[in-house]
Design a protein around this nucleic acid. Structure first.
Length: 273
DNA sequence: AAGAATGCCAACCGCGGGACA
DNA sequence: GTGTCCCGCGGTTGGCATTCT
């Protein structure tokens, strides 16, 4: 699986496109002996017909000895989702919290897997909130299935924290949308987080029926507040599930309250800072 | 079996920001 | 204050692999 133009040379006669094993070897040898020093000067010193930028990219994304290749674990997957909720598209910042993973790798994984997965689960990958744009449900069958699924989640959520065990989720059970059991558990947890933050459930001592959250537009231009804007870096994604219910009555006000909450989890606070 | 569509990901491009003269 | 150099980041591209029809 190769990248770009196989034989397209740059305007300075510098080579572009996929790296040859021989070029890799030269770059590795040079950096192991001398360190990379100035990337701009490196190609000349190492005897490579590449620009410094290309060398840096190749080293950082592929040749570095500490790079962990292969599939992302479920734990890594979840970490990426949490980090994305907190940081947005700050791939390099995310990479610094995932040892052995590069920003490019995380970015690709997000764009090719996680984004779709969240969309499929009815979660907006930008806001990390439940989606409301029904354009994603092109037919009535899907709409009904979504409603049914939403109901399924809600009923099980209201059934309490023993939901997974009570329902004996198994790989071969008939689960809505074909979700794997762990995905349903994750979805339930997302609902719990969202609920805790927006008070659309009945309180623990109450028997009142649950209230649905205020709808949040999926398109960024319609959003007054998003969790991944740089100016909103004080949001702690774990706080969403930890914060006490506030007295706010709308989603936007609830977000406003979130902005004011002191980060309580040091790990996420570190990340956000 | 073959062509079309889609998925995947390495690598490139352009921009912004820090350091320095 | 301004210009230049360099680095790093995020977005995008494009070709091979895989799946679908």
């Amino acid at each position: 699986m190769m990248g770009r133009l196989p034989s397209n040379n740059g305007e300075n006669g510098l080579k572009k496109g996929p790296w040859l094993p021989e070029e890799d070897r030269i770059l590795i040898d040079y950096i192991q002996t001398h360190g990379h020093g100035s990337w701009r000067a490196l190609p000349k010193l190492a005897g490579l017909n590449r620009c410094g930028k290309s060398c840096r990219l190749r080293w950082n994304n592929y040749l570095r000895p500490d790079i962990k290749r292969g599939r992302f674990s479920e734990e890594e997957e979840q970490t990426i989702i949490n980090l994305h909720a907190a940081l947005g598209n700050k791939w390099s910042a995310m990479a610094s919290h995932l040892p052995g993973r590069t920003d490019n790798e995380i970015k690709n994984f997000w764009n090719t897997h996680l984004k779709k997965k969240l969309l499929q689960m009815g979660i907006d990958p930008v806001t990390h909130l439940p989606r409301t744009d029904l354009n994603v449900l092109p037919n009535l069958t899907q709409l009904l299935a979504a409603a049914e699924f939403s109901n399924f989640i809600m009923m099980n959520f209201l059934a309490g924290p023993t939901f997974p065990e009570n329902h004996q989720l198994q790989a071969n059970s008939n689960l809505p949308f074909g979700f794997a059991p762990h995905e349903l558990v994750q979805l339930q947890s997302n609902f719990v987080e969202f609920n805790n933050n927006h008070q659309f459930q009945s309180s623990s001592s109450s028997t009142q029926p649950a209230q649905l959250p205020a709808l949040v537009p999926a398109s960024p231009e319609c959003r007054p507040i998003t969790v991944n804007q740089p100016e909103n870096k004080n949001i702690n994604p774990n706080d969403i599930s930890k914060s006490n219910p506030s007295s706010t009555s709308t989603t936007f006000e609830a977000w406003g309250d979130l902005m004011d909450n002191e980060a309580s989890d040091s790990y996420w606070r570190d990340i956000i800072e």
